[in-house]
Design a binder for these strands. Structure first.
Lengths: 206, 206
DNA sequence: GTCTAATGAGTTGTAATTAC
DNA sequence: GTAATTACAACTCATTAGAC
């Protein structure tokens, strides 16, 4: 008989709008009021811990939104993208990197879970949150991130035919379990990597 | 992790009722600084006596009024709202947080009771003391407190009696939904598949 | 007795860390 | 990079205790 169960810290927004309340003023959708400067060092009220692991970052709604959006587009960004996001969201680079790692892990887990559910309980299909249903994303990665990776090199970037065939070889050494997850960023050819250096061809319209 | 005390099973059901809240007329004349003399002793604020229970806070009428007003608007305020209230009411943050927790608990309980009454004694409907019947609010929260949320506080009076921290805040956590526990990760901001970062259009200037 | 602020165990999601 | 793990942080519920 519980009408509510907001257990864990979570935040994500729908396209929700103030419906019943917002009497006096409203500026929906745009969190530009305060200058949100998420402190990444030591922020929480009080002092929960000192000297331990670095304090848990609390992402803002907007940051998560952006991160999630980028993640859904490119689960494996490269360093330029990390840097861009770092600057954009005013977060340290490590935080961004870690977020993507965790996001991939989460997506993988959700995918597995959904997959298992689908396989096991095919008939039992209740409308669960669809947030984890777009897990068709491909999360295998190939080891292009090596220091002398060809992708990042400016001399090779825009020829997608090259990387598609050359390193598009689907033989990741660490391809463990899921073969449903397929090609890594190779199929990101729809988003060519030439734009990665130049801040990803898409400009923020703001 | 500490099985010291047995705990009842943990199961939830959900039932929800429409929410009745008074938007702006919650506390039209909020206490600016008239003369609230809350005995927020240093007992539980500055110095936590280990082992000793904090002294029970005695809220003033105004404080309770304000808290109740804010609660009816947003049962799950964000951290900034807590801070605002803390400053506004001259109460420690912890006290505010605990008050909201207890208020939620109370509301849930009342809601359950009402629900049981309605369900069990459908025909028997006498006007019992509805001193707390106004708690038929929706306590589902969809995203929890967050540093900068694009919301405005509905508890913030329209008047200028107090704008000590005009942090825009407005959460529409009041989603009326019947008997469905929203899972925390329920709704994500799904973005279309092939657009990299132009999605939300919330990219700050760079 | 009632009412409720405070406490604490328990759950959950996840940022950060570690091991690989 | 991954997978597993740890350490929070924000909540829940039940309970305890303090003032009426």
């Amino acid at each position: 008989q519980l009408p509510l169960r907001p257990h864990p810290p979570f935040l994500f927004l729908s396209q929700n709008q103030p419906l019943t309340l917002s009497p006096c003023s409203l500026s929906p959708g745009l969190p530009a009021n305060t200058s949100p400067q998420p402190q990444t060092t030591d922020l929480h009220r009080g002092e929960p811990h000192r000297g331990r692991r670095s304090s848990r970052t609390r992402f803002t709604e907007q940051q998560l939104e952006t991160l999630q959006g980028v993640f859904e587009a490119t689960p494996y960004p490269r360093e330029e993208e990390y840097d861009r996001l770092s600057a954009l969201l005013s977060l340290p680079n490590r935080v961004i990197v870690v977020w993507f790692q965790n996001a991939r892990q989460r997506a993988r887990k959700n995918q597995d879970r959904n997959d298992d559910d689908n396989t096991d309980n095919s008939g039992e299909d209740e409308g669960q949150g669809d947030s984890q249903n777009e897990n068709s994303m491909d999360l295998t990665y190939e080891y292009y991130t090596h220091p002398d990776s060809p992708v990042l090199d400016s001399s090779t970037p825009c020829t997608d035919s090259d990387h598609l065939t050359a390193k598009g070889e689907q033989t990741p050494p660490t391809r463990k379990q899921e073969d449903k997850i397929i090609s890594p960023q190779a199929n990101t050819s729809v988003v060519p990597e030439c734009q990665s250096e130049g801040e990803e061809g898409q400009e923020p319209e703001l």
